[in-house]
Design a protein around this nucleic acid. Sequence first.
DNA 1: ATGAAAGCGCTAACAA
DNA 2: TTGTTAGCGCTTTCAT
Lengths: 346, 346
Amino acid sequence: MAATMKDISRYTGLGLATISSYFNGGNVREKNRKKIEEAISALHYEVNEVARGLKTNETKTIGVVIPELNNIFCAEIITGMEDILRSQGYATIVCDCRTNEALEKEAMDFLLKKRVDGLINMPVDTHGQNLLQFQNKGKPIVLIDRRITGIRCDCVLVDNRNAAREATELLLQKGHTEIGIISGPRDVYTSEERLKGYVEAHQKARIPVQESLIYHGDYTIESGVQGLDRLVRRNPHMTAVFVTNYEMTLGSVIGINERNLSVPGDLSVIGYDNQAFARACSPTLTIVSQPTGEIAREAAEIILHRLREKEEQDEEQIVRICQGEMIPGRSVRTMGGCDETLSVRN
Amino acid sequence: MAATMKDISRYTGLGLATISSYFNGGNVREKNRKKIEEAISALHYEVNEVARGLKTNETKTIGVVIPELNNIFCAEIITGMEDILRSQGYATIVCDCRTNEALEKEAMDFLLKKRVDGLINMPVDTHGQNLLQFQNKGKPIVLIDRRITGIRCDCVLVDNRNAAREATELLLQKGHTEIGIISGPRDVYTSEERLKGYVEAHQKARIPVQESLIYHGDYTIESGVQGLDRLVRRNPHMTAVFVTNYEMTLGSVIGINERNLSVPGDLSVIGYDNQAFARACSPTLTIVSQPTGEIAREAAEIILHRLREKEEQDEEQIVRICQGEMIPGRSVRTMGGCDETLSVRN
DNA sequence: ATGAAAGCGCTAACAA
DNA sequence: TTGTTAGCGCTTTCAT
């Protein structure tokens, strides 16, 4: 069996309180400090965090609930957060809820049972009922990427509206007037914001928004394929399309290939996320890229902050807004003028 | 504060042993069972797993150490495993070690400190020194995707050699004789096996293997880009290339675009993993696809099995071999004959 | 600065 | 079947 503090106590002849004090940054006489350290290495002692957790009511564990782990956007964020949290002694328990509200609730209940110290959530559910249980127990919550109603808590967001507006404006500036959008689900925050950005750009340019140019997908590859198909068929004069997440962008490219369309000759495209994929497309895709590293860092820091300042509850809600970025490719054609030609090989 | 068993005891007038017995499947008189259940819902009682863990020396937690979480292959496997483990009450703590041996060791130490009940590992390190600590403590280990020396434990593998041989044979059958391979690092199991498959196919076909056609990358996108570049420059007569993981496949496609090569006209390509990406390529990529779901299921089941049969230690080592699968695309040209033409648009 | 002792919430051995 | 009790390994008063 592993050594316990009792063993250290026996080995050094010191009391438990001294040993504990040593591990918790208390004052221990230099001589005893030495003795303890000797005992530790002699006995290969390691603090039992489970026992400590029972006493302190902390598990040094953070729960993370996300819609899909095999979604590059989520994966990148988790990678970043996990790194920081671990460096501070916190384990990350991930729960993938498959973009399903019921499973999301199950995951939250599970994490609550596991007594995580805090929760980081990219919510599927939009009214935040499940989150309340955490809040009631005084456990900090940080929402990432999506804001929801029904709960007031810290969150890290991206300025989706701005990013989408910029993307749409680029298209408008290049002379496109019939721009399709493959949007996300109606009730998802990011999706709504991106659509608003699209609309705003049109309003600023005084170009009417046509319903037929808006397709609501569900952020999956298949809905990207289908969205492209629908938009193309419904809108014979559409010259550009803006796709609002990576999976649907991938789907759109599949659709474009299957329909044998030429980019940007037949259709200009602006995608979302995943720079490597954009570079692998031919021609390279112009995309909106999101700052996953920054999101991860902010979220981890906020929750660590809350965990440290456990007492000062009634502090202000923290809201961080990160900015997306346009990564230029060659998938947008300039209309009217002829400075970009149509033929593109492979 | 949350209710404890003591509260239930007080509420029902029953002793702690009875309550505990109730929660651990013991025999409890129907009448008392009812009472306990009433108390549970009245007090919103939930077992405190931390306390239980202290007593039973179990945390109901599994550690997972992988090289890169934002690697679709890893992400898919984790998604699958997490799902199954959670359904059995086990939390999954993921640690991404960034394909770095030192970080991998740190992650293992961390998980040991967190007292996980078992470990699932896709190893970066090849001699298994770090794993020994788990084994010595009687904690089950399941290796996935990669076999390593220096430790005898359960593992779930893919028949990489076979998959690579089939892919290479396809190219040979189509008349290619100068086939490049973008292989992985020299000391990684999967990489070695895939290379062996490539060599075997050549030997069977009595076609000599040329050193200049072998490039060793490191499973990253950049090494795919570079690998393609090197191979093309070194081998003017190379007509096909086999790329042995997803990231490098993505990199190769980037390289192909940047060099303005036509597929399969100038170069036939067989990639690896990620069917969606293969479909998004133009022409669609022929790839070797790996059974991530199956790997996940097997790994989770093995570790759960070991956790259940804690006592019967000296059982046989379990080794599961899953099969990859070729997914045909249009990226392989038939040489000599002219049944596939060169020009491919967009 | 250190020691003694109580107790976190649970399980399990023993008695009844 | 049920109750009593002693820990699991730690933290934390309270004395000293």
